[in-house]
């Protein structure tokens, strides 16, 4: 990875709305260079998508997020990949990580209600053959997500001073 690609990634990771012309200005290069770099990064699946950070708590739309620790029996020849795939294919699952330590998979789940989430865990997740145990943690409040502090105020606190 060259420095231009790295800079592009670190800027768009924070702000995916910045356009390619502006990126070229910020990084002191041509727009064609930026377009080429981004196309390459997309093709290599380095850039996997362009998302928006939303604090749903402020919208009145009902959403519940849970972190579920899952212990599984790895399968011969396939390790954890097959069970992970079976879990991540559910659209309500927003992330699946293989984790070191006391359990194997960390699953993030979004539902409309507690009932939604618990029915997923009891009916779909726990019933998978290789799943040995699950522990469900409901998220009560998000303070910071993807490097963004949810309650941060942005006003300029610098005062007028001379010289």
């Amino acid at each position: 990875m060259n420095t231009l690609e790295e800079r592009v990634l670190s800027i768009i990771e924070k702000n995916s709305r910045v356009d390619t012309k502006e990126l070229a200005i910020l990084l002191g290069t041509e727009e064609s260079e930026i377009l080429a770099a981004m196309e390459k990064l997309e093709q290599e699946d380095v850039i996997c998508g362009y998302h928006t950070m939303i604090d749903w708590d402020k919208t009145g739309v009902d959403k519940v997020t849970a972190l579920i620790e899952v212990r599984v029996t790895p399968q011969r020849g396939k390790g954890f990949d097959e069970i992970a795939e079976r879990i991540y294919k559910y659209p309500e699952v927003t992330s699946v990580y293989l984790i070191s330590g006391g359990y194997d998979l960390m699953v993030t789940l979004e539902g409309k209600s507690l009932k939604d989430v618990s029915s997923f865990v009891t009916n779909k997740l726990s019933t998978l053959d290789t799943v040995i145990a699950t522990t469900t943690h409901f998220i009560l409040k998000k303070y910071k997500d993807h490097g963004t502090i949810m309650t941060r105020h942005h006003e300029d606190q610098r005062e007028m001073i001379t010289p």
């Binding site: 300029d156 610098r158 007028m160 001073i161 001379t162 010289p163």
Partner: peptide
């Protein structure tokens, strides 16, 4: 200080955008 005089006017304006501050943001 010459900046002082200028900032005195700025501070009276509530909706001004400043590019005047000489310290990191």
């Amino acid at each position: 200080s010459g900046i002082r005089k200028f900032f005195d006017i700025v501070s009276e304006m509530t909706d001004a955008i400043s590019l005047g501050v000489g310290e990191p943001d």
